[in-house]
């Protein structure tokens, strides 16, 4: 019979959960080096913190970069003993479905929550470096302003134009194959990894220039997603017009970096190729119809 929560502290006391035989198991101290800034380009500096990791048997489950940042926040003292401030960063679900905590870790863009320290810093004294994404203006420290990405979603009309929220029956039927393709595209969490990795996607601080700046792989793939839906396709022409224009699909340099860094393994290059064909056909059609 159950006697008390105190005996287990529920899932807060979960000794042994992290011990899966993979990675190092001993207690150790790692270093976390963080590129900080008060705002974009202002007081940019590197700070280094020590983070103590308990041994595998004493852990409350896996330790990720977020847990390191939480430890630093509760006692923000750098390795040289200077009292600093908690590091500013975006975070949300911590299970890699919201896209918030995207940053550059050891030179590679990814979500901090799914970045386990045992993989990145297996030995005592190992270093993890954290930097903000470079393609977006820094708000502070690791927090960047990704509003350009959301604005670009609006520019390709990334929605299904339904007739309101009334009870109007079911949506269009689709086959399991179509659903699987659309589902994969729909798992895009607008994290920006593909944009950070793209050579053609460059930093733009001036909001008035967002419209003619490259929309990037995530947005091209979303345009494809909505063009694939029966009702969504009614706005196909407008989406293709946007993608045919400045900041559209012609900016893609085919480096294929996007698909390599996508945490959700979305077939972004497939989407770009598909939309490239659609845009070409769309233009030919326009040309011959004399518009």
């Amino acid at each position: 019979m159950i006697q008390s929560n105190d005996d287990t502290d529920l899932a807060t006391d979960t000794r042994g959960h992290a011990a899966n035989g993979k990675g190092p198991s001993g207690a150790r101290t790692i270093r976390v080096r963080i590129k900080r800034a008060d705002s974009h380009g202002k007081n940019v500096r590197w700070e280094e913190f020590k983070v103590d990791l308990p041994s595998a048997g004493e852990r409350d489950g896996a330790i990720n970069v977020i847990a390191c940042l939480q430890q630093i926040a509760s006692n923000p003292v750098t390795v040289d003993g200077t009292r600093s401030t908690p590091v500013t960063y975006e975070s949300g679900c911590l299970e890699e479905v919201c896209g918030s905590c995207t940053m550059v870790i050891n030179g590679k863009v990814r979500q901090a929550c799914s970045c386990l320290v045992d993989d990145y810093a297996p030995n005592d004294g190992d270093l993890i470096t954290l930097e903000p994404m470079s393609k977006f203006p820094v708000v502070r420290d690791l927090w960047v302003d990704r509003s350009r990405l959301f604005k670009a979603l609006a520019s390709v009309k990334a929605w299904v134009p339904i007739d309101g929220t009334y009870d109007l029956g079911e949506g269009p039927e689709e086959t399991p194959d179509e659903q699987q393709t659309r589902y994969k595209l729909s798992t895009c969490m607008s994290c920006g990894c593909c944009l950070e990795a793209c050579p053609q996607y460059t930093l733009e601080e001036d909001e008035s220039k967002f419209d003619e700046s490259f929309v990037g792989a995530a947005v091209i793939s979303q345009a494809r997603y909505f063009n694939m839906h029966e009702t969504g396709a009614t706005m196909k022409k407008q989406r293709l017009d946007t993608l045919a224009g400045p900041g559209g699909i012609n900016n893609c340099g085919n480096s294929q970096n996007c698909v390599k860094v996508c945490p959700k393994e979305i077939p972004l290059t497939e989407s770009i190729a598909a939309m490239g064909r659609s845009v070409t056909l769309h233009r030919i059609k326009e040309f011959f119809s004399g518009r």
């Binding site: 299904v160 339904i162 009870d167 029956g169 079911e170 949506g171 689709e174 399991p176």
Partner: peptide, 21 residues
Amino acid sequence: PKIIDLFDRMGVPFNRTSEGQ
């Protein structure tokens, strides 16, 4: 049931049976 229909119209990729239901 109406809410499911609405999400369906909004394009939510609900899993489908082999018949497309």
